[in-house]
Every structure is written in structure tokens, then in C-alpha cells.
């Protein structure tokens, strides 16, 4: 009986090691964050800390361009307002994927409450408002109708 128990324990141990090893390999070979820049701490280049755009225009050009054309870009709501600062000295923690209730809510809480009261909570903000992609001109052009108005 004791030997059966021992064999079972050894079997369980090996099974646990195999499953654990498998997950360790999966996490090492297929990281959830697949951005090499994310592995390099921003503090390695302190001279660039205040200038997100100088790197991100090269490394994430679409995000940079989308932000520039967005309402946030036009109104100069800069990166650190939502993402914090890499050195941790900003008002909010440095985070590539900021927590929407705190970060969006800091400015948009009244609108968020109105939307929640009207429609209930549907996912997070980004379910309807894609992160950097809220171009300010697009809807204006779409909504523009042909008119014979010649003066403003």
C-alpha cells in the first residue's frame, strides 16, 4: 500500500513538473507582451523621458499619428496624462494600458456616468472608442452636406 502511494506521489510530481514546464516554456516562447521596446526600460534613456514622440514616431508610428490626428492630439492631451511617466513621478502610475475608469474618468467622468445611466456599462471605454483612433476630422467630413452657402 505504501509503495502504491509512493508511486502515485512520484507520478503526480512528474505530471506537475511536466505541466509546469510546459507553461514556463509557453510563457517564455510566446510572451503576452510582444513588443521588444517594452522590454527595454524607458529609464535607460533618461534624456528622452520627456519626449515620447521622438521614439514612438519611429517605433509605433501608427499610434503616434493616430494620437496626433485625434481629439486628444489636437487638444494636446499628451501621453503622460493617460500613461503616466516612466520615472514614476507623474500623477498616475506609468502604464502602457492604463486603467480606464481612473484615467478616462479623470476628465470624462460626468459623460461616463450619463452613458452608464442611459445604456448600462458596456465593456470598457475602448470597446466603443478605440484607443488612439478618434480622428477629429473624419466625422466632420462625413457629416458635411453639400450647401450653396457662400459666407459664414
Amino acid at each position: 500500500m505504501a509503495s502504491v502511494k509512493k508511486t502515485l506521489l512520484i507520478g503526480l510530481f512528474f505530471a506537475a513538473v511536466c505541466v509546469g514546464g510546459f507553461f514556463v516554456y509557453i510563457n517564455a516562447a510566446f510572451p503576452t507582451v510582444r513588443c521588444e521596446a517594452a522590454k527595454v526600460t524607458h529609464l535607460n534613456a533618461p534624456e528622452d523621458l520627456s519626449d515620447c514622440a521622438s521614439c514612438h514616431a519611429k517605433t509605433t508610428p501608427r499610434d503616434a499619428q493616430d494620437w496626433k490626428e485625434s481629439k486628444h492630439g489636437v487638444l494636446l492631451v499628451k501621453c503622460f496624462v493617460c500613461h503616466g511617466q516612466p520615472d514614476g513621478k507623474g500623477a498616475i502610475p506609468f502604464n502602457a494600458k492604463p486603467e480606464y475608469k481612473t484615467v478616462c474618468g479623470a476628465c470624462h467622468e460626468p459623460a461616463m456616468n450619463r452613458m452608464a445611466a442611459k445604456y448600462g456599462e458596456v465593456g470598457d471605454c475602448h470597446t466603443c472608442h478605440p484607443r488612439h483612433q478618434n480622428p477629429i476630422h473624419r466625422n466632420a467630413f462625413e457629416a458635411k452636406t453639400v450647401t450653396d452657402k457662400t459666407s459664414f
Binding site: 510582444r34 513588443c35 521588444e36 521596446a37 527595454v40 521614439c55 514612438h56 514616431a57 519611429k58 517605433t59 509605433t60 508610428p61 501608427r62 499619428q65
Partner: peptide, 24 residues
Amino acid sequence: AIGKLAHDAYLGRNGQGKRFCSGC
């Protein structure tokens, strides 16, 4: 132009922003 910049970064010719194909 944006694609060229992103692919430069992907190939390590400009910046360190390799995000893998499906990242962008």
C-alpha cells in the same frame, strides 16, 4: 511612409520597436 518607418523598426534598422507582425 508609416509602414516604412514601422518596418524599419521591425527589422532593427531604426529604433527598437519590434512588435511582431500581429502587434500592428
